[in-house]
Amino acid sequence: MKMLFTSMAALFLTIPAIAQETSIDTTTWFDNPSTLTQTDGASIYAGVCAGCHMPNGQGAKGAGEYPALANNPSLMATAYPISLVIHGHKAMPPLGGLLDDEQVASVVNFIRTNFGNNYTDNEARAELVKNMR
């Protein structure tokens, strides 16, 4: 039924200008009203970060903008994205209440090693996240 509906819905809704590559698996999503329950970096990214920084980390621009995470040298220092995720800054909301230490570390490691970023050194760990809260 659900599969049938998905193809049906496509008839009614316009294909977005920038289509997402594949349909996202949301089976681990929507499990708690106040926290995210996804555990691996890619799923956490898809479940919260992609809302603003977009599915491929390309960012977006309107009256204000969400910076691209793709090919972003600011991600070189591990502490910088950790701090932003926990505490927020400007339009970026603090997500420290939504994500636990492990989740913050996972998603920071994900963005530092994807979308054209290749910062494999100084991996984020839950301990460091905890100390930065």
Binding site: A19, T26, F30, L36, V48
Partner: peptide, 11 residues
């Protein structure tokens, strides 16, 4: 809250 963030992240 958390549900809204996740709907935001979908197409």
């Amino acid at each position: 809250g958390a549900y809204a963030y996740q709907f935001n992240a979908l197409s």
